[in-house]
Amino acid sequence: MAVKILQKKDLPCLLGKWSQSARVLAPARQDEMTNLAPWEPGAELDLGRNTWKPLKELFFPRSERMFAYTGDRMNAELSPIDQDHEQTVVFGVRPCDARSLALLDRVFLDERFTDDLYKAKRERTVLVGLGCNKPLRSCFCTSVAGDPHGTEGLDVLFVDTGDEYAVYPLTGRGEALVGELPEGSGEVEARASALADLARDMMPRYPAEVLPDKLTHMFEHEIWDRIHEKCLGCAACAYLCPTCHCFDVTDEAKTTEGHRVRNWDSCMFPLFTLHTSGHNPRTSGKQRMRQRIMHKFNYFPVNSGAIACVGCGRCVEVCPVNTDIREVISEIGEVK
């Protein structure tokens, strides 16, 4: 589809138009953090950085009721939870986060076991991206098959070209949002593509592509003794990670009625693998750290065809002890 053009000053007008038929979310600064917030006329956007919280939360909330039940175990009645059906447009999604959804789709939209709760939210949400012209200090998307102007997972891509945005409709749903914008010239397109090249060149590179094969033979490697040592065993990295998607299922019940709930969970916790018998197959921090790295850079590539990291750098920023996944990638890359 041909590139469109939008003068920057006309952005609120366009968001206003979208908000007539959908809930519009856009990044805004609130309580010293930039996160998605409901957009309303006059709202100030913060498009200078990615959101602190990852996009997954919109589709895979931290805690979600799956269904309700009444009765006892012999005679239970199940009822679905009322879902929010509001059409949603998210503006300002960074290509790394959009890609994280494309990866989560491989898990939750697998046709053998489709997750209806996730699917419903995906279907009612349109993602409007904003290309990254300048990587932040912990960005490394190009090392994990991403791109600062990447389009995977997006319905529309905006590129900031100065006084205007180059707007690329990518899907039918995207076309419906921006179809009426005027067509952009070849010059606009050239400017956008030069900006993409510049951003790619600025991005540091780490040898992540060698990890999937290499790790296959490294389960017992001594490197794990070192990598995990400073890890405190919290889940800041996993919970702020746009692709970590493990959850625990529990019942929240009062006598004869309750809900089945799923909550985020993390392989960094010993409880994650604790069996009912009391046995725990992963008792040490070393085993748990190995699991997290293996899942992202070996198991997910083998099972789902891609590295489960989009290089957003959130884990680098939030780790309380500065465990830096980029250093981990380099260290494993250097193993002979």
Binding site: A235, Y239, N263, S266, F269
Partner: peptide, 11 residues
């Protein structure tokens, strides 16, 4: 604000 990552407890 808490997301129950238990970073506080672990640190």
């Amino acid at each position: 604000k808490c997301i129950r990552c238990y970073a506080c407890r672990q640190a």
